[in-house]
Design a protein around this nucleic acid. Structure first.
Lengths: 334, 334
DNA sequence: CTGAAAGCGCTTACAG
DNA sequence: CTGAAAGCGCTTACAG
């Protein structure tokens, strides 16, 4: 099989300049599309063509050293568990950032914190948290590492939170089915406590707006048998329907209910969140909330870009498409 | 709240040298522990202390530009789904690499391939595939981007595969329970086809060694109703026990069997793989294979390090601790 | 409007 | 054994 010969030496911008008889700066201006330069269209085309021909790739480290910017967006993830929909969001965000010349890199800090945080070695232009606000310690560490911007902005106390309308859909769905004694099941995992609390509070607000009593608070730890306790607590409180933090918690509740001889959905309705694969795997299949990941991903990318370039953030949170997917785990209250 | 004053300018090695009245090179030698230098212990301690005091952090981009090495290990993951145990492996590997001064970064190529691959912008010293061998196209692209080493080594045709003994444990477990008509259920997801095939073939070998007939091949797609077809096919082939590629596939089979009125485990035993959270969430809870992720993670780190530094790879694959966890989804054949 | 020059913070051969 | 110097491949003020 004949493959094109690959030279060992890397192709630099200087090679293009030399080969075209231009100055290196001119080549740089063309390749970076530097504004405020007047370079003839013909020259531009020649530069692009030659870069293509030689297989030129900018040297990231050199660019970072010279410009002081890495063009890296570091997304800090919860160490576990990673929501299914979140991963799709990130794929979309990554594509959008790539088009803008940035790389999205995900990072999950170690629970024990033994390792050097990745922002120290990567010095991203932007760090974006998917787990609520950065701690003061993290903020200090990032500043010391030269991270120029963080999302949410630590200097802005009332920065926008991401929209969390899923719990509202869950509660509305259950209310529409005639349930009035509702519970909200948290995940007990401390590592996602912020997001859990946010969803819980949105569920509480939604119930309030519908003039329903505040949801009974349940807590499920996926590692142990706490789902059984939660189901027992719910039933003894007269609860007929549970909105769960996510599909895994919902599945755990369904499993525990079945083991306890409580029929789902006949005696207890359970609605999940994310439309993760598990939602259609378990029996009965879970009613859940599906997220328009593409839209949210692009919104995240826009947030990161505005922070990187010091623009103001995108004016409006996009109308994220949330859909309640009705499956077999919810039924009208009888 | 008084926090220590943080200067805007970053601390360089030159600052340490200046403050200590040493040459920059000396400081560099101490900080890099360059071999073959004779620097007094006292000087070393002074350098370390001053670096600590000033909060010195090496500038990654500058180091990369000067040395031609980024000290980055890029782990290429399947785009979906990421095995639960794999993530734990990576955490361990990341810790081990961090101690050696390398950063582990994970990367999931986009299914559509629209974005620039991350190895182009990051130029890692090593790219490590968790999805079988790199394609020739990927290898070429990495070489062009200056990636110096790949694991598995594309030049070595018979490079070691990772140990995959889980399917052996599954088959042995089922055989010990008296099952002789066994099936192996693949995941139909094309993106993990290599790993699926590897596990399947290990299951086949294990059956052969036990003088059992070759496992009936099933295929499950998590998105649709193929699990029902698989169960039907298994039952009509006289299968009494199924070893599944992973816990999600196992859970899907269990769900489909229950929907079809087939009792699990009384009429059909199912054993999963990974001991993912789903294994103890579903009802009945899944018998499965648990992996000693710590050991495997350190092995991966050692593989990457040896590739990065041009050593020979670790001589022996560690005795990875695999345990069959017996839960409620398997029962002796009656 | 264009081009030559300095400089980013390191590493590393090389001369004393 | 130690230290001054060149250079990695870019970007960016600055002078023509």
């Amino acid at each position: 099989m004949s493959r094109p010969e690959i030279s060992n030496r890397r192709v630099t911008a200087a090679d293009i300049a030399r080969s075209l008889g231009l100055s290196r700066a001119t080549v740089g201006f063309v390749l970076n599309e530097t504004p405020g330069q007047t370079i003839s269209e013909q020259t531009k085309q020649r530069v692009f063509a030659e870069a293509e021909r030689l297989g030129y790739r900018p040297h990231t480290a050199a660019r970072a050293l010279a410009s002081g910017r890495t063009r890296i967006v570091l997304v800090v993830l919860p160490d576990w568990p990673l929501d299914f929909s979140l991963r799709r969001n990130l794929e979309e965000a990554s594509l959008a950032l790539d088009e803008a010349g940035y790389s999205l890199i995900t990072y999950t800090p170690h629970p024990t914190g033994q390792a050097r945080p990745l922002w120290e070695t990567l010095a991203p232009d932007v760090a974006l948290s998917m787990v609520g606000r950065f701690s003061q310690q993290q903020v200090d560490s990032m500043r010391r590492a030269g991270v120029r911007a963080m999302v949410p902005d630590p200097d802005q106390v009332d920065a926008d939170e991401y929209p969390e309308e899923g719990p509202v859909l869950q509660v509305q769905h259950l209310a529409r089915l005639g349930h009035c004694r509702i519970a909200f099941a948290e995940s007990a995992d401390p590592r996602i406590a912020d997001l859990v609390a946010l969803r819980h509070s949105r569920a509480r607000q939604a119930a309030e707006e519908l003039l329903l009593p505040a949801p009974v608070a349940l807590s499920v730890n996926l590692g142990d048998d706490s789902a059984s306790d939660a189901v027992r607590k719910a039933v003894s409180a007269g609860v007929t329907a549970i909105a769960a933090y996510n599909d895994e918690v919902a599945a755990a509740l369904v499993g525990a209910a079945l083991r306890a001889g409580i029929a789902v959905p006949q005696q207890l309705s359970v609605v999940g969140h994310d439309d993760a694969p598990i939602a259609s795997i378990v029996e009965p299949q879970l009613s859940t909330v599906r997220i328009d990941t593409a839209g949210l991903g692009r919104y995240l990318a826009a947030l990161a870009l505005s922070a990187a370039e010091g623009h103001s953030p995108p004016a409006t949170i996009p109308q994220t498409q949330l859909v309640l997917v009705e499956r077999a785990s919810t039924l009208p209250h009888t």
